[in-house]
Structure formats: structure tokens, C-alpha cells
Amino acid sequence: MIHFTPIPTAIARAYQSGAPDANGQTPERHISDGPGTPCRHCLQNIPKGAAMLILAHRPFPSPQPYAELGPIFLCADPCEAGGGAELPEILASPEYIIRAYTPDNRILYGTGAVVPTATIPAEAEARLSDPRVAYVHIRSARNNCYQVRIDRS
């Protein structure tokens, strides 16, 4: 079984309170224009007209060569953490990059692929069946933006 894991609530609340992002900058405040602005905490699209943040996020515990950082959207106001066994609402594109990581947060070579969205649960389960894999990331196939982490449940 798998679990879609949002960015931690403590990190989301820090950004929502104006804490610096992974680049040391204050998150930018914008207004959502609707679909295509996926919050990485509630794992839902930020509704049209709602305040949102755009910021640089590193979904790893510390900088190292494999610790990619990049832009994400986040609800500007506190939102409830999403996640669970079901494919989150934010995964609405036709395909995504899937990539597995080791316990020391390094890419496990040979695990990366662009996969159809509907196959993400099965693809994640297959990678997580390998004892060398600690977790999986899903990233945008078009822009490489971090979407969500997948853990064993």
C-alpha cells in the first residue's frame, strides 16, 4: 500500500507566515487563476480568486547534489493537509515523472520514468517494493516541478 504525503504542515505554516523559501526569499503572494495551481499541502487545486503563494521549495531534509529545488504553489491561508491512498486532485495532467530515492535521499538510478497518471499508484508500489527505496517523488513531466511524495503506508 502507498500513501501520498504532502509537504509537512510545519513547513507549509512557516511559508504561509512569511518564512523564507529554499532560496532565502519571501514567498510571493498572488491570486489563483484556477486549475493549474496545485497546493502541495492540501493537495487540491487552489480555487480561482483565492490567495496563493509561489515559492522555491526543496523537498529534502538538507542540500546535497540530488536535492532538487524548484517552484511550487501553496495556499496563502492555512489549509488542511491532504494525502492518503487515493490519487490526489492535483495530479491532473496526462503524465508525470516518477523517481525513487534511497534512505540517504539520493536518486536510485534506473527508477525514473515518465508514466501515465493513472498508473502512478502501481508504478509507485513497484518501486517501493525494492528494499533500497525509501520513498518516491512525483514531478511534472513538462516542467519538472515537485508535486508530491509517496511513502509506504
Rank of each mutant, 00 (worst) to 15 (best):
M1K: 11
M1F: 04
I2F: 05
H3V: 04
H3F: 12
F4E: 05
P8N: 12
A10R: 13
A10E: 14
I11R: 08
I11K: 08
A12C: 05
R13E: 14
Y15Q: 00
Y15V: 00
Q16I: 09
S17F: 04
A19R: 04
P20G: 09
P20T: 05
P20V: 09
D21K: 03
A22K: 00
Q25W: 13
P27D: 08
H30C: 11
I31C: 07
I31D: 10
I31M: 11
S32G: 12
S32W: 12
D33F: 06
G34D: 09
G34K: 04
P35D: 12
P35K: 07
G36E: 04
G36N: 04
G36C: 05
G36T: 03
G36R: 03
P38S: 08
R40A: 03
H41E: 10
L43R: 07
Q44S: 13
N45S: 12
N45Q: 15
G49F: 12
A50T: 15
I54D: 08
I54E: 13
L55Q: 03
A56T: 14
A56F: 08
H57K: 06
R58Y: 02
P61H: 06
S62Q: 13
Q64N: 09
P65C: 08
P65G: 07
P65V: 05
A67V: 08
E68R: 11
E68T: 06
L69G: 07
L69D: 07
L69K: 14
G70Y: 05
G70K: 08
G70H: 09
A76Y: 06
P78D: 14
E80C: 10
G82N: 09
G82M: 05
G83F: 05
E86D: 14
L87S: 04
E89F: 09
I90M: 13
I90K: 03
A92G: 07
A92R: 10
E95F: 02
I97S: 01
I97V: 15
I97N: 09
I98G: 01
A100L: 02
Y101A: 01
T102I: 00
P103M: 12
D104P: 06
N105P: 02
R106S: 05
R106E: 01
R106K: 11
R106C: 02
L108D: 07
L108H: 13
G110T: 02
G110F: 03
G110N: 08
G112D: 01
V115N: 00
V115D: 00
P116A: 12
P116K: 12
T119G: 01
T119E: 08
I120Y: 02
I120P: 00
I120H: 02
P121Q: 06
P121N: 08
A122E: 14
A122K: 13
A122D: 14
A124M: 05
A124C: 15
A126E: 11
R127H: 06
R127G: 02
L128P: 00
S129Y: 01
D130T: 02
P131T: 07
R132P: 01
V133E: 00
A134S: 14
A134G: 10
Y135E: 04
Y135S: 02
H137K: 06
I138A: 00
I138H: 01
R139I: 04
R139L: 15
A141G: 11
N143Q: 14
N144S: 12
Y146G: 01
Y146I: 04
Q147G: 10
V148E: 02
R149I: 09
I150S: 01
D151R: 09
R152W: 07
